[in-house]
Computed example of a mutant assay.
Amino acid sequence: MSAPNTNIEKQKSRHAPSLLGVGAAVVFGGIMIVALIAYVLGNADEDDADAVTNANGADAPAATTATE
Rank of each mutant, 00 (worst) to 15 (best):
S2D: 11
S2C: 05
A3H: 02
P4M: 06
P4T: 00
N5Y: 05
N7P: 09
I8T: 13
E9H: 07
E9Q: 10
K10C: 00
Q11H: 05
K12W: 04
K12T: 07
S13V: 14
S13P: 01
S13K: 15
H15E: 13
H15D: 14
H15C: 12
A16E: 10
P17V: 01
P17M: 02
S18G: 10
L19W: 09
G21W: 00
G21D: 03
V22C: 05
V22G: 05
G23Y: 08
G23M: 01
A24R: 07
A24D: 03
A24T: 13
A25R: 01
V26M: 08
V26Y: 13
V26L: 12
V27I: 15
F28V: 07
F28P: 03
G29W: 08
G29K: 06
G30A: 12
G30N: 07
M32A: 15
I33P: 14
I33R: 11
V34E: 10
V34P: 07
V34Q: 02
A35H: 08
A35V: 01
L36Y: 10
L36D: 12
G42K: 06
G42C: 04
N43Q: 06
A44F: 08
A44G: 09
D45M: 00
D45F: 08
D45E: 05
E46F: 08
A49P: 08
A49I: 13
D50K: 10
D50R: 09
A51E: 11
V52P: 00
V52M: 06
V52F: 00
V52Y: 04
T53G: 00
T53F: 07
N54W: 02
N56Q: 03
G57T: 06
G57K: 03
D59A: 15
D59L: 11
D59N: 10
A60T: 13
A60F: 01
P61Y: 09
A62E: 12
A62C: 01
A62N: 02
A63Y: 02
A63P: 08
A63K: 09
A63C: 00
T64L: 08
T64S: 09
T64H: 06
T64D: 12
T65I: 15
A66V: 11
A66T: 08
T67G: 01
T67P: 05
